[in-house]
Design a protein around this nucleic acid. Sequence first.
DNA 1: AATATTTTTTAGATTTGTCTAAATTTAAAA
DNA 2: TTTTAAATTTAGACAAATCTAAAAAATATT
Lengths: 216, 216
Amino acid sequence: MQSYTEENYLKIIYHLSIISNPVQTNAIAERTQTKAASVTDMLKKLSDKELVDYVKYQGVSLTEKGKLMAINIVRKHRLWEVFLVEKLNFKWDEVHEVAEELEHINSTLLTERLDEFLEFPKVDPHGDPIPDQYGNFADLSFIKLSKLKVNDKGTITGVSEHSSPFLKHLEKLGLTLGKKIEVSEIIDFDGSVELLIEDKKINISREVALHILISK
Amino acid sequence: MQSYTEENYLKIIYHLSIISNPVQTNAIAERTQTKAASVTDMLKKLSDKELVDYVKYQGVSLTEKGKLMAINIVRKHRLWEVFLVEKLNFKWDEVHEVAEELEHINSTLLTERLDEFLEFPKVDPHGDPIPDQYGNFADLSFIKLSKLKVNDKGTITGVSEHSSPFLKHLEKLGLTLGKKIEVSEIIDFDGSVELLIEDKKINISREVALHILISK
DNA sequence: AATATTTTTTAGATTTGTCTAAATTTAAAA
DNA sequence: TTTTAAATTTAGACAAATCTAAAAAATATT
């Protein structure tokens, strides 16, 4: 059984290792809000437990065992996010901190029943995929437009919001099914997105980007 | 903000002080699965924070502040139990350990939304009352038969299960509204209850006792 | 009331996760 | 390639929550 703190390290290493592997000590220190010296101590501990492969001065990566644990925490985090948004009417920006706590509740029965109660969701409210209990991610045929990065291209293949004001708005902007788009800029301030569509530049709010589904 | 451990001490002192006030060090040690010396240390700490009134060698009781915190934890514990049973189909004996963890999630928004989602339940699956967000317990006019102790008397005033097999079963046993009953024995083995009703002895399972409401 | 027993507290040590400051290793720059 | 800078690790310390063993206080017994 891992401690709350160890679980957090595993989760953070998992997220960071998607960007660069192995993961550096300082990167972890920044995320955990601790000092590099503390991270070094913890890496030794996780290494002793064979949850990470750690080479002094080089960096750290998850072992299979560690990776499975990390994915399980991610799974719980995202399932709870779905619960908070769909059942308790949380807004998408209100869920993170609470899910950070809920993800550490360890009960297989709870996790699986929750999954069932939520009708086996494949993505969380931010569009991130939810792994199954064996750690496998469904390969999604589409992702939310809000998940794209600058210069990413794709085709509009669906929406996740079906109200008529929203659909009318899309039509007015020319954002209809099958159209090819490219992200030209993401505005940090409000998360709004600048798109290239048929050589025209248009701007959409983050709210809109969240509900447009893109296939690559 | 209190630590997980401090919260557990407060909760345990709250429960124990219902039986005897002030609470003794050894009683706490037994419940927390620690040693008396550790309890003494923690009582000093809680006393410094003005969460308990602690007199050396005499015992400890909760201050108003400490009591409110304890009740809030009890509130969360019982709400989560309702959630697990009603929404995730946990059995009444499967909920405790998980609720012990969930009760420490601190988010007022979460607690209040959960309460709303569950339609403001007044009792948990064991029949224990759920305090409101201000720490007030509704004074229930009835309690579950399963909450009675040997020699307790009362009148049947309702049921919490309305399926026809259940109601037919009650009728066959003569357990109808308005009847006076007395608990003559509780069988530890399966939690079944022996009742005196109109000078006859009858036996009912714990399952049945859970769904009969009694007023005194 | 004196003695024995139980309960509680103190003193000092341990573990976990953290820190600062100094030393070491690696990477970058002159 | 030597020097400088950045990243990382070691060493020693600290706070939280626990422990054991011994001392002190309260309670029970003769």
